[in-house]
């Protein structure tokens, strides 16, 4: 795994937490052709992103190849506070994945 494939920032405002996540990923749709060889570049994209806070699965995102390269995702949830950890993980269609535990600031 490339290092730092996932960056997560979580910020609490009252009990509402805003999370911003950035993943380094090529997000190939499987429709694009390699310009040099003319061969189709196989699909390779992030399928699932999950966020877990205190054992509670806050959000599960199911993605297709129509999400942009180096995907960005932002969402909000209630019930978090400063110092809590939020675990964000992703998995792609080739079995790759990564997870990161971010402290809520």
């Amino acid at each position: 795994m490339a290092k730092k494939s996932l960056k997560v920032k979580a910020k609490a405002k009252g009990s509402a937490v805003t999370v911003k996540a950035l993943i380094s990923h090529p997000m190939e749709t499987g429709l694009r052709k390699d310009k040099k060889t003319g061969k189709i570049i196989p699909a390779h994209f992030v399928q699932e992103v999950t966020a877990v806070h205190n054992g509670n699965n806050v959000l599960t995102a199911n993605w297709s190849g129509a999400i942009s390269k180096n995907p960005y995702l932002s969402f909000k949830f209630d019930g978090g506070k400063k110092g809590d950890t939020l675990k964000v993980s992703w998995a792609d269609n080739k079995g790759g994945g990564d997870s990161v535990e971010a402290k809520i600031k």
Partner: peptide
Amino acid sequence: YDLGKGAQAYISTRVK
């Protein structure tokens, strides 16, 4: 997106 307990109805991302 499947929203769990506490999640607000807010999603921001980038699409093709």
